[in-house]
Computed example of a mutant assay.
Amino acid sequence: MIRPRNPWLLPLSVFVALLLGLLPLPAWLLPFRPYWLALVVAYWVIEDPERAGLGFAFAMGVLADLAFGGLLGEQALRLVVMAFILQRFRAQLRFFPLSQQALAIGGLLVNDRVVSAAVHFTLGEPQLPWTFWWAPLLGMLLWAPVFLLLDTFRLGRR
């Protein structure tokens, strides 16, 4: 068994993603806030499936639900759905170039919005305005920098 070079990186990256999600933004910027936690969970599910799987996604979702104060279990469901799809297609995704990975992550982030809308519709909660559908596009554009940054720290490259 190979020990990870930086065992602190996974919890630190999740902590930073939660902080970025809690960062106060002006009202006009809120629709463009990327789902940082989803990007970080996606990275770990793809790159370190022994440490990050469905249970990890569920735990991070519950933690995010508690931190952000939304519907308890909503983000957990969203992250578990995303992690399940990522696990299913992990073998193919790992060999995609970053641009194609970004498109796949963008599709998963759109799917995340669909799951969120379905949960809100089912429970009779108010829906997010249509402008919030821009966030998956920004998340898709941020996938390559997030991936490269975490990969650099994880592998210890300079």
Rank of each mutant, 00 (worst) to 15 (best):
R78I: 14
L109N: 10
R113Y: 05
L98T: 04
A104V: 13
R88S: 08
A59E: 14
L103S: 01
Y43C: 02
E74F: 08
Q100C: 08
F89K: 12
V40R: 01
L63N: 05
E47F: 07
E50K: 11
A67Y: 12
E47R: 12
V80N: 00
P126N: 06
S99I: 14
W130P: 00
G70D: 07
R51C: 04
L79N: 09
F96H: 13
V81T: 12
F58I: 04
V119F: 07
I105K: 03
A104T: 09
L108Q: 00
G106A: 13
V81P: 15
R88I: 10
Q87G: 03
Q75E: 13
L77H: 05
R90Q: 01
R94L: 05
L72D: 05
L109Q: 10
L123G: 11
P49K: 03
Y43T: 03
F121L: 15
M60C: 13
V115K: 06
E50C: 06
T122Y: 12
L123S: 12
L54N: 03
M82L: 12
E47L: 07
A42Q: 03
G69Q: 11
Q101C: 04
F96C: 13
R113S: 01
D112I: 09
V62D: 05
L98F: 07
E50S: 09
R51T: 02
I85F: 01
G107R: 07
L123D: 10
N111W: 09
I105S: 00
E74Y: 10
P126D: 07
L86D: 02
G53M: 03
T122V: 14
A102H: 02
L98K: 10
Q87S: 02
L123H: 12
A83P: 06
I85Q: 02
M60K: 09
W130S: 13
Y43G: 01
V40I: 08
T122D: 06
R51Q: 09
Q75K: 15
V81C: 11
L86R: 03
A118V: 14
L103E: 00
V110G: 03
I105G: 00
E125T: 01
A64T: 09
G73T: 02
L66D: 06
A102N: 03
V45C: 00
Q75T: 10
G69S: 08
G124W: 06
M60V: 11
L79K: 11
P49L: 01
A76L: 11
L71N: 13
P126W: 09
Q101I: 02
L109P: 11
E50H: 12
V62K: 00
I105L: 08
F58N: 04
D112Y: 15
F68R: 10
G69V: 08
A57H: 01
E50N: 09
A104N: 03
A102L: 03
Q75S: 11
F58K: 08
